[in-house]
Design a protein around this nucleic acid. Structure first.
Length: 578
DNA sequence: TACTATCGCGCG
DNA sequence: AAAGCGCGCGATAGTA
């Protein structure tokens, strides 16, 4: 028995060439302290994870967790100081956060190097060549930041929700690292086949694929210009004007409205060129290794709390390429996505029982039609999107009064968020993530317009930027709360997957890494969708876990409010949506 | 040569 | 179909 076995928290940090661990009890009082050689750390963490299951408080999951996972050590919970700092620093529910805001070292974004060192060394602290600054790694800085954050939460007007948010955010930090470590199973041969079927055989370096050349020739023929350039927007626009196609841009939506023999081959050329440049052979060579696509996830990389990604465009995977997402032999994929997440979240936030009634069951838009607010499903969709995005014109803008009378509470919530943003105020999500304050430039524009000698143009500009900010805050509360729901869903699901029995390691290299090669694991997260890679025998159990996790997330955020979050669930060898 | 800005298009 | 939100990335064009 070791004093650290009673730890609620264990803070990790560097001190010189060593790692110091500080065990804290539930009141954050120190109960033990250890100084470790970096080489001992993985075993030490593994042992405490088993005996104490503490919440590991560290500067940044990106700095500490990849090495642990590589060594086969998974941790259940952490407190990610960097991500939590960013939330607390701006949170409106923390009335005074001056000491947090003064700790600007913690504002450094932390980026993971896309290419890890050729020979990664375990906690090689001699490596001072980090390409990105990142947050402080020292134990003293970690402990004092941890204390500042505890004080901030305690001073908050809603500490319970804030704690929930910090826990969910920290779970996201773990999951982001785990997703990269496990990777998305990717069948390079299937991807290659798609490319050669669509573009022709892989061209030699510098050459254009054969199929693109053929289509380009059709375009040039239709333009009557054998030398026309198709890759330069400016030149292409001039070519189009020369043959009487008076478009303002070369965007495909505008082109599609035109009647001319060049349009069809040109759109086809654009489609092929997009595949070739964004997800062609070069992408495959760069991003897929050993049957895995391993992007870098950036939890909370978006102001609203949504995740971003860097490298490989993980969050923009074209539908076309989903057929290359393919389970290992003996394994399968469980693909789960939430239908109409954002309007459901809005119904719950606003306690709008009429919208929640419409949301009952699979298709919220059909429910909105049944409510009588609009006539067709298509109208329901654009009306609701317009409500959440702030549409003012077009079909969407015209339908909003109908929504207002049918769902007054939901509409009042987003309208009020817009009004506050328009006025230069800040808004918060359900759990308390707060929008950034308006920029100094934005304020300058507003105050310039209220000058006595302001011109009409000044006023118009101020008005426009106020409306823009209103649309941002309108959407912030919904998008941000949806991101919170998704985090809670992921975190709960992650726990359920980890509790499932491991399977025997299959022959061949454990391409998902030592932790995930023997058990179901998350393989992709895309705002309102997850893909789980699982041994075949556990697929049904995993699907059920995804469903249960969704119900659990809904209770965690919205308590007993009767709102459904139904999942579309598929069990399949590929992630193809068909 | 190295950078930034803009467009266009993929995703939710 | 692309109005109204949030992103990343590649190509071209312009600037230093």
């Amino acid at each position: 028995m070791d004093a650290t076995d009673a730890a609620t928290w264990i803070v990790l940090g560097r001190a010189g060439d060593h790692v110091v661990t500080i065990a804290l009890d539930e009141d954050a009082q120190e109960i033990a302290r250890a100084t470790l050689d970096p080489a001992e750390l993985t075993d030490w963490v593994a042992a405490r994870e088993t005996s104490a299951a503490p919440r590991w408080a560290w500067s940044d999951a990106n700095a500490w967790y990849p090495q642990l996972l590589d060594a086969g050590v998974r941790v259940a919970r952490c407190h990610d100081l960097r991500l939590c700092h960013a939330i607390l620093r701006d949170a409106a529910s923390v009335p005074e956060a001056p000491t947090l805001r003064a700790a600007t070292d913690w504002d450094h974004a932390s980026l993971v190097d896309a290419e890890p060192a050729a020979v990664p060394t375990l906690f090689d602290f001699a490596d001072t060549t980090r390409r990105h600054p990142g947050p402080p790694l020292g134990i003293d800085e970690a402990l004092s930041e941890f204390e500042r954050q505890r004080a901030a939460v305690a001073a908050s007007t809603d500490p319970a929700r804030l704690r929930l948010l910090l826990a969910a955010e920290s779970a996201g930090a773990l999951i982001g690292v785990e997703l990269r470590a496990a990777g998305l199973p990717w069948d390079a041969a299937a991807h290659n086949a798609l490319l050669s079927d669509t573009l022709g055989p892989r061209p030699v370096a510098g050459a254009t694929p054969a199929r693109m050349e053929e289509v380009a020739a059709d375009v040039r023929r239709a333009l009557g210009d054998p030398a026309a350039s198709l890759d330069s927007q400016q030149k292409l626009l001039r070519s189009l004007h020369r043959v009487g196609i008076l478009v303002e841009s070369t965007g495909k939506w505008e082109l599609a409205e035109q009647q001319h023999p060049v349009i069809e081959p040109l759109l086809e050329y654009k489609r092929l060129a997009r595949l070739y440049t964004a997800n062609g052979w070069t992408w495959l060579d760069e991003w897929v290794r050993d049957g895995r696509f391993r992007p870098t996830y950036v939890p909370a990389g978006v102001v609203t709390g949504r995740w971003a990604s860097s490298g490989g465009g993980a969050l923009q995977l074209p539908r076309q390429l989903r057929q290359a997402v393919r389970a290992d032999p003996g394994w399968t994929l469980v693909v789960a996505d939430v239908a109409q997440l954002e309007p459901r979240v809005l119904a719950a936030m606003a306690s709008d029982t009429r919208l929640a009634d419409a949301a009952r069951g699979r298709d919220l838009y059909a429910g909105v039609v049944d409510s009588g607010a609009v006539g067709t499903r298509a109208e329901a969709k654009i009306a609701l999107l317009g409500a959440m995005y702030g549409a003012t014109t077009g079909d969407s803008g015209r339908l909003l009064p109908r929504l207002r009378s049918t769902f007054p509470r939901a509409m009042a919530l987003v309208d009020e968020a817009a009004r506050i943003g328009d006025d230069g105020g800040i808004v918060s999500t359900w759990l308390g993530r707060t929008s950034p304050p308006p920029s100094v430039e934005w304020r300058a524009v507003q105050s310039q317009a209220s000058d006595v000698d302001a011109s009409g143009a000044d006023e118009a500009r101020a008005r426009r930027s106020a409306k823009e900010r209103g649309r941002f805050t309108r959407n912030f509360v919904v998008q941000g709360t949806a991101a919170e729901w998704a985090l809670a869903w992921l975190a709960d699901l992650r726990g359920r997957l980890a509790a499932m029995p491991p399977v025997a390691e299959s022959a061949g290299a454990p391409r998902s890494g030592p932790v995930f090669a023997t058990r179901p694991h998350l393989a992709l997260f895309l705002h309102d969708e997850v893909i789980i890679h699982t041994p075949l025998a556990l697929a049904e159990q995993v699907a059920e876990a995804a469903r249960e996790a969704a119900a659990s997330a809904s209770r965690l955020l919205f308590g007993g409010f009767p709102i459904d979050f139904p999942l579309d669930l598929r069990i399949a060898e590929t992630a193809d949506k068909g």
